Structures are given as C-alpha cells and as structure tokens.
Amino acid sequence: MAESTGLAKVMMPVPDPHPDVFDVQWPLRVADVDRTGRLKFDAATRHIQDIGSDQLREMGFEETHPLWIVRRTMVDMIRPIEFKDMLRLRRWCSGTSNRWCEMRVRVDGRKGGLIESEAFWININQETQGPARISDDFLEGLHRTTDVNRLRWKAYLKAGSREDADEIRDYPVRVSDIDIFDHMNNSVYWSVVEDYLYNTPELLTAPLRVTIEHDAPVALGDKLEIISHVHPPGSTDKFGPELTDRVVRTLTYAVGDETKAIASIFAL
C-alpha cells in the first residue's frame, strides 16, 4: 500500500483476485443518476454504505459490531458511470487499528465507468457512544487484505472562515435526511457536493477527487449553512505539497459557530 500523503494520497489497488475481497453486483437505477445520466456522488456513497452493511453481515459480525460512524470518505470519480449500467462493487480493508479501519470500495461499470473510494470507519459502543475495540476474530479477517495495523487518524482539512468566504448559503435539513441514529445521514452531505457541482459543471469534465471529513453530526432543526471557498493555484500548499499547482475548493458545513463537516474538491 502506498504511504498516505493526505488529500493527495494514492489509494491501495484492489487485491484481485483475493478470497477476502467482498464482490457484489447490482444495477444502476433511475434515482441514482442526475439529469445527464451520471451516477451521483450521494448515490455512490449510499452504495458504499450498503455494501459495508452487506459485508458486515456476510462476515458474521452484524450483531456484535452493529454501529459504525464514518469520519472521512474520499471518492475519486475517474470515469462517469452512466444510467442503465451494471455496477460491480468490491470492498476490502486497507488499514486497521484496534478501534477503527479504512475500507476501500471500487465501483466499476460494465461500460468503463470507474469510481474509487476509501472511508475511515470507527467502531462505536452502543452504550457509551464512544470508540470500541474491534474483536480479535473480526480484525483477523480485516488483516487478510492489508499489512497496515497501526492506522491513526489525522485530519486533512480545516474549516473555512465566514470572513473571506466566496459564498454562504442555507441548506435546509429535511425529515427525510435523518437516519435511524437521529442524525443527517452521511450520503446527504454528498447532496451538498452535487448542488455545488451543478453550479460548477466544468469540474465534471475531468477526473475529480472529493473528500468529506465529519466533525459532529447534524440534527433535525439545525440551521445548516454551507461556507464555500475557492483556493487558487499557488495558495494551496496548506493541502499538501502535491496540490500547490491546482485549484482546491472547500465547503464548510456549519451550524452557528460549530463546524459539522468539511469537504474538498479538486481535479486529479
């Protein structure tokens, strides 16, 4: 696995064939695509969540490890996946610690579309709502696809300020956005990205990396605002030396003075 370099990290390639890579297929449906027929980021992340649940059940740990929260999801849209395609999703572990892991999902379309993703998942104790140790037998299965066993959390993004924002706009939280944990579901954060891309369609003409880091949950009734910034080339060393030559856009999800999440968008 390539060493992490923050936002510009190289994702672990799929170890294929490998008996511990979870491999499923399902069709791309009308609710998954935008007006042009492209698989949307919010729909892709729903699929990423769903295959995670399916793999947990397949491995036999759905009852003992039922609650996970995602701290970061990185999604590369390499080539758009289009309507009426058949999706092949492969999921495997790319790094672990005792209480969290990084899980890779590769989504292939039969017509050549490709989305790569990696998510940082934390195992949660239902009673304390804090990080919980992953059982040894679960870790044994995860370790079969990676030799990274001392994974540490490091934030890649910092919140943007209101003072120098390019735009600040409201994003109403709907009842249908709230999931079983009484928080705005992870995939809804990606709906904000889709709204942003609608107004910046030029970003979709090249491979794109979008990363979202979560700091705190959004609840029903929160007055959520999206604070947008555009960082031109030469000012983007804060995101890592590999990104100083390109535009990096950020979206800060804020409720009052509290940052709930931060997204970054840039061309690969």
Rank of each mutant, 00 (worst) to 15 (best):
4 S>P: 14
13 P>Y: 03
14 V>Y: 07
17 P>T: 04
17 P>C: 05
18 H>S: 06
22 F>M: 08
22 F>Q: 09
23 D>I: 06
24 V>E: 11
24 V>L: 09
26 W>Y: 14
28 L>F: 01
28 L>M: 03
29 R>Y: 02
33 V>G: 05
35 R>S: 13
40 K>F: 00
41 F>H: 00
44 A>Y: 04
44 A>N: 06
48 I>G: 00
50 D>F: 05
52 G>K: 04
54 D>E: 14
60 G>A: 04
61 F>C: 06
61 F>S: 05
61 F>D: 02
62 E>S: 14
64 T>V: 13
66 P>Y: 04
70 V>E: 04
72 R>L: 00
74 M>K: 08
79 R>S: 14
82 E>C: 10
83 F>D: 05
85 D>V: 00
86 M>I: 14
89 L>Q: 12
94 S>A: 06
95 G>F: 02
96 T>A: 06
99 R>V: 09
99 R>H: 07
104 R>L: 03
104 R>Q: 12
107 V>E: 02
107 V>Y: 00
112 G>C: 03
112 G>R: 05
112 G>Y: 07
120 F>D: 11
125 N>E: 09
126 Q>L: 10
129 Q>A: 12
130 G>A: 13
131 P>F: 04
135 S>F: 08
136 D>A: 12
141 G>W: 10
141 G>F: 09
141 G>R: 15
142 L>G: 10
147 D>I: 06
148 V>A: 09
150 R>V: 09
154 K>W: 11
164 D>N: 15
165 A>K: 05
165 A>T: 04
168 I>V: 15
170 D>P: 11
171 Y>L: 05
171 Y>W: 14
172 P>R: 11
174 R>E: 00
175 V>P: 06
175 V>D: 07
178 I>L: 00
179 D>G: 02
181 F>P: 10
182 D>N: 15
182 D>A: 14
183 H>S: 01
191 S>K: 15
193 V>Y: 00
199 N>H: 14
199 N>Y: 11
201 P>H: 05
204 L>I: 03
204 L>M: 13
205 T>W: 05
205 T>N: 12
209 R>T: 05
213 E>Y: 04
216 A>K: 13
217 P>A: 09
219 A>Y: 13
222 D>S: 02
223 K>N: 14
224 L>Y: 02
228 S>P: 12
228 S>I: 13
229 H>Q: 07
232 P>I: 01
234 G>M: 02
234 G>C: 06
238 K>T: 12
238 K>L: 09
239 F>I: 01
241 P>T: 10
241 P>D: 10
243 L>D: 03
244 T>L: 09
245 D>M: 11
246 R>T: 08
248 V>C: 02
250 T>C: 08
253 Y>F: 13
255 V>E: 04
257 D>Q: 12
258 E>V: 14
258 E>H: 11
265 I>H: 02
267 A>G: 13
267 A>F: 08
